[in-house]
Design a protein around this nucleic acid. Structure first.
Lengths: 229, 229
DNA sequence: CGACGAATGTTACTGCGGTAACTGACACGT
DNA sequence: ACGTGTCAGTTACCGCAGTAACATTCGTCG
C-alpha cells in the first residue's frame, strides 16, 4: 500500500487514521466516551496523551488572557487531538466535545514505541502536526481581515470541507454549532455573527435546515468570497 | 545524552538542532547562503525541502487573498523552516531571510531516511512541528484582541524571547526589523504601529538603540502587559 | 400546557483602526 | 552636493465592530 492511498479514505486532503493507524493502535484499547460539551483536556493539564477520535466532533481552542474563549479549529473522527503535548508538558490548548464523541487515549510514549515498530505510520504521524499547523495558518489568514462577514464566510467554507455533506444541491453541516461557537471560530462578537448570518440568509447563501443545522449554498458562497476578495 | 539536554543549548523552551540533528545531517552537506530579503521558498513552490538554519533570521509568512503580506513568525539559527512540505506538496507559506542567512537544505525524503536510521532524532523532529504550531497559536491569541498596542507589546515580548540579548539592564533585539515588518507581525497598518511604538517610547518602555535596533525594557513591558490584560 | 432557560435577533452609541495623503529623516550612489 | 529611494512619523476622516441593553423564538421538562 502506497502512502498516497490514504487519501482514498479521506474526504479532504488531510490524511486520516481510518485504516492503518487505528488498526495498529486501537484493537486492544478501549475508547472513552465524551458527552456533548464535555472537556477532553483542559488548559494546564499535564498528562501527555493523544486522543484518536473514533466518532464525533471536537473543538480545539483556548481561553485568552482576557478570559475570552476562542476556537482554533475542529477535529472529527479520524483526526487526533492533543498532539501538542509531544513537546509541551503543560497543555496550552483545550479540547471539548461538540457532540457526543468516542476517542481512544494513547500516551505519547506508547505512540513513539508504536512508531519505532511500525515506521510506515510515520508519515501519517507527521500529518497530524502538519494539518494542525495548516489549519491554524488558515485561522491567522482569516483574522488578518477585519471584516466579520468575510471571516464568517471563510469559516463556512472550512466547515463545508470538514463537516459538509450534500443535501439537495446544497451542503449541510451535520454538526450543530451554536452561534456562540461560530463566533468563537470567527473570533468576533456573537451579535455580529448573528447579523452577518442573517445577511447571508437574505442573499440565499445560508440558512438553517429543518433540523436546525446549517445549510450552505457552496456555489453562492464561492461567488460571494471571490467578490469580496 | 538525555532528551532534555537540548534545552541547555537553547535560550527558549524550543529544542534546537545545534548538536544532534545538525551533527548527523550536516557534515557532508553544503549550506546555502541567502542575502537579506532573499526568498528561501515561495508560495506555490513544489520542492519538498526542509531548511536547517545555521546562521541568521528568517520570517515565515504568507500573502493573503487581499494581497497583504503577513508574518506568522520568525525562525533563527537552530530552527527549521519549510516543515509544512512534509504533508503539503505545494507551499502555502513563504520564507524570507530577514538578515543574511545560511541554511542547509535537506529533502524531506532524506530526512525520513535519517530518522529511520537515528530514532533518537525523532523527538527533536516532532519538536519542529510542535513549536511551529505553538507559535502560530500565539499569533492567533494575539489577533483575538483588536488593540494594536496590546498586539505590539506582545510581539515585542515574543521578540525578546526569540532574539533578545541583554544590554545594560535592557534587552536589545539584535536583528533589524523595519516597522513595516513589525506591522506584518502585529497584523495592523504600519502607521498604527508607528504611533503605538512612539507611545511606548514616551513611556520609556521601548526605544531604538544607537545602532537602530529595538531596545526594550522587559520589566516595564511586563507591567504594561499585565495592566492591559 | 405553560414556564423557564438557552439561543437567536436587533438596535443606538462610541471608539479604534484602516485609509489616504502627507512631511520628515536618513543612506547611498554618482 | 544633489537627487533618489526607503523608512519613519503624523493627521483628518470614515466605517465597522465592540458594547450594552433589549426583544423574540425555540425547546424541553415539570
Amino acid at each position: 500500500m502506497s502512502i498516497d492511498d490514504d487519501t482514498v479514505f479521506s474526504s479532504a486532503l488531510v490524511p486520516t487514521f481510518r485504516g492503518r493507524f487505528c488498526d495498529i493502535l486501537s484493537p486492544n484499547r478501549a475508547a472513552r466516551t465524551f458527552d456533548k460539551d464535555e472537556v477532553i483536556y483542559e488548559l494546564g493539564d499535564k498528562e501527555r496523551i493523544f486522543f484518536f477520535i473514533r466518532q464525533g466532533v471536537v473543538k480545539i481552542g483556548t481561553i485568552t488572557d482576557h478570559g475570552r474563549e476562542i476556537i482554533y479549529g475542529l477535529r472529527k473522527d479520524g483526526d487526533v487531538v492533543g498532539e501538542l503535548c509531544a513537546l509541551e508538558s503543560v497543555r496550552r490548548d483545550r479540547a471539548v466535545a461538540v457532540e457526543r464523541t468516542e476517542a481512544v487515549p494513547v500516551a505519547f510514549d506508547e505512540l513513539v514505541d508504536a512508531l519505532v515498530k511500525h515506521p510506515a505510520l510515520f508519515r501519517d504521524f507527521v500529518g497530524i502536526f502538519c494539518s494542525a499547523l495548516s489549519e491554524t495558518y488558515d485561522q491567522v489568514n482569516r483574522l488578518a481581515v477585519n471584516d466579520v462577514m468575510y471571516r464568517l464566510v471563510n469559516v463556512f467554507k472550512t466547515l463545508v470541507n470538514k463537516l459538509g455533506r450534500p443535501l439537495g444541491g446544497l451542503v449541510e453541516i451535520a454538526t450543530y454549532l451554536t452561534q456562540e461557537e461560530l463566533s468563537q471560530m470567527v473570533v468576533a462578537r456573537r451579535e455580529r455573527v448573528s447579523t452577518a448570518f442573517n445577511s447571508l440568509r437574505r442573499r440565499g447563501i445560508a440558512r438553517y435546515s429543518p433540523r436546525g443545522h446549517l445549510l450552505l449554498d457552496v456555489q453562492a458562497l464561492e461567488v460571494y468570497r471571490s467578490s469580496t476578495r
